[in-house]
Design a protein around this nucleic acid. Structure first.
Lengths: 211, 211
DNA sequence: CTGTGTGAAGCGCTTCACAGCG
DNA sequence: CGCTGTGAAGCGCTTCACACAG
């Protein structure tokens, strides 16, 4: 069966909702309730889950902790993943301070080319030169947060790929070229801003979009 | 004609590529070249553009400055948009320092509920209490960067909507409820991280995704 | 009788082949 | 003759209706 990749990102949302329900002490839920919280249809929720298995009880619904565990399993969040930050400028430093990576992700490396920055302590470690990537990545770090300037992004990505990285969260406004085994997700702020097209798009075309 | 919203985000990429070409002194380009840089097909490039008009010359290609101007026009980037940051924690402060908003976006407001933070100067202004949103937004601020904790996000969004905001870049891991006229784009880090599903997804399902 | 799980229909985005214009 | 612009085909995601299990 072919799984739509959009379904995966919705799974993440469902998982978050389940965690909120659990925190509220709610033990049982339904596709209807999950749908409302996630702002999708109940059909969509059930279909998304059905790609991976049957986790509910007909006539009853879903047990919150059970579905939560299954989703964590599916999403690969039942283990710890190592992260590193490449580029310790403003954004990289802010991310190093970010407390919200959760229990499935751990910052394990901080890299920069600038000798001025190398050696500086950051929360959870010390900034190291990018030359050390090949020693630091294998077996320890799976995902990189790439927060270097646009011009340096492709070169840094090449280093990461050579070091054996599995995925890159790219904050730079470029389309990176990497082997297809390496996953890249673009999270550029400006791209995000302009994805707010409904708000800023030339009015001449706005209604055609909305239609 | 109905415009796929995915086409819009690609337009942003094409625009960035055109700016790079212009910086390199290249005056003429083709759907082929744009496609290669954007990592899509030339068919896709031409179709995306065709939703909005005809900007090239058959048998020749596209003139870089012309297409650039047209794309800026379509995307509504030929004017200045006012931004504000709501929630001046680590992420909000990092964004306030972010130099890359370009000429179409200008930070015009910084808000927080914490009286400790109110009054503190930041690059380009001073932190104000959220109560002032209704006075500050109308006619000056169209888009908000929402960087408050998850629990506070919906309430802050309600304030912004009441103040007349047009779009919200939501950095909190929640699905916001807003009127449909207000555009919301979710840019939560963890959502981004887990969108790297190809890298972390349970191997049991990975190949079904890739297929 | 209730709410899940799913094959099939519907629909929108992408791909394509080629018409059209310079 | 070259490259754009586009109607139509192809394909994948979403929606739906209903069978089915509890």
């Amino acid at each position: 069966m072919k799984v739509p990749s959009a379904a995966i990102s919705r799974l993440v949302t469902y998982l978050r909702i389940l965690e909120e329900l659990e925190a509220k002490g709610i033990h049982r839920t339904s596709s209807e309730q999950l749908a409302e919280e996630a702002q999708v249809t109940a059909f969509q929720v059930r279909k998304d889950l059905s790609y991976f298995g049957s986790y509910g009880t007909r006539g009853v619904g879903y047990t919150v902790p059970v579905l939560k565990r299954e989703l964590r399993h599916i999403l690969g969040l039942n283990r710890k993943w190592g992260l590193c930050i490449v580029g310790m400028g403003r954004l990289g430093s802010a991310l190093a301070d970010y407390p919200g990576f959760g229990e499935s992700f751990e910052l394990r490396g901080f890299f920069d080319v600038d000798p001025e920055k190398v050696g500086r302590p950051v929360r959870g470690g010390v900034i190291e030169p990018v030359d050390l990537l090949p020693q630091r990545v294998p077996g320890r770090i799976e995902i990189a947060l790439l927060t270097v300037p646009r011009e340096a992004a492709q070169e840094a990505a090449d280093l990461l790929v050579a070091a054996g990285i599995k995925g890159i969260l790219n904050f730079a406004p470029v389309v990176l070229e990497v082997p297809k085994e390496v996953a890249v997700e673009n999270v550029d702020f400006l791209a995000g801003l302009t994805r707010l097209s409904f708000a800023i798009l030339n009015p001449k075309w706005r209604e055609e979009m909305m239609g």
